[in-house]
Amino acid sequence: MPIPNNTDHSPGSLRRSYKRYLKERVIELLLFLAAFLSVFITFAIIYLLISESLVFFEHVSVWDFLTDTQWTPLFDDAHYGILPLVSGTAISSLVALVIALPFGTIIAIYLSEFAPFTVREIAKPFLELLGGIPTVVYGYFALLFVTPLLQTILPDLPGFSLLSAGLVMGIMIIPYVSSMTEDAMRSVPMHLREGSYAIGATRFQTAIKVVMPASLSGIAAAYILGISRAVGETMVVAIAAGMQPNLVWNPMEPAATITTYIVQVSLGDLPHGSVGYQTIFAAGLTLLLLTLVFNILGHLLRKRYREVY
């Protein structure tokens, strides 16, 4: 490569540097487009869900959608009430969170404040590995291992139930919640702990009264992530909770969630453009709004409790 000479102002050199400038700008533009793709994806999701839902709401009034207590869009006597799906989603998520949040938090406190170095070094990657297991595998556990096990304790439990789906979902989310909570607690500066120990606090007191309040924003974020995972989880409930939409508040019953309804319709063969086809977009929009609420909540919580060191 010839060494460029700065004093050379011949037209050739100028053209070369202009070409070089142009190439830089084109590359920058391409990189920007790749980054902007994420914004495009978001808009595509919102546009698609809303436009298909609008067609749906021409057939069904919003009031019926929100208040009707039956969801039977594929029957002759069609009802389009989202409540049964929302109740299924809420119950299965609640069962999951009752398991995942306490267990996840206790494990995180132990790993962050009590565990010896080697235990933590082994447990952390282990938790990450468990977080990568496909959800369909957990569905297998729920239907073929946990349900029969629960049936020996609760003989009335049907073969499909929100309870076993929720339990396994909870077990599935434990690694997420504990890993993220532990990260949040580890990020609390050491001198806060040292200060607490110096005035004679035990590890437990330090964990509860110093570390947890200081990392509240991160812990809240971990919880919110756990909730939105439970709400959006599909395969475990699709496999283990049955797929009939029931307006139930009892976890011992089979029911459908928003996600399982979408799966159920997709497994069948609905013609593109029919009302049945549009129902899954209306259900998807509901799901997106639900998760959006949790994400915004998490964002606000983080802002409200952010500690600055």
């Binding site: 994420s38 914004v39 994806i41 978001t42 595509a44 999701i45 698609l48 869900l49 298909e52 992530l225 939105s228 709400v231 959006g232 989880e233 599909t234 996600t259 979408i262 799966v263 997709s266 899954i280 977009f281 998807g284 799901l287 997106l288 998760t291 994400n295």
Partner: peptide
């Protein structure tokens, strides 16, 4: 903000996007 939000969108929503798009 978008990249962070996209990571939190349930996977089945991507399925709906793909079905339509």
């Amino acid at each position: 903000i978008n990249v962070t939000n996209l990571a939190g969108v349930p996977s089945i929503i991507y399925g709906l996007l793909a079905l339509g798009l």
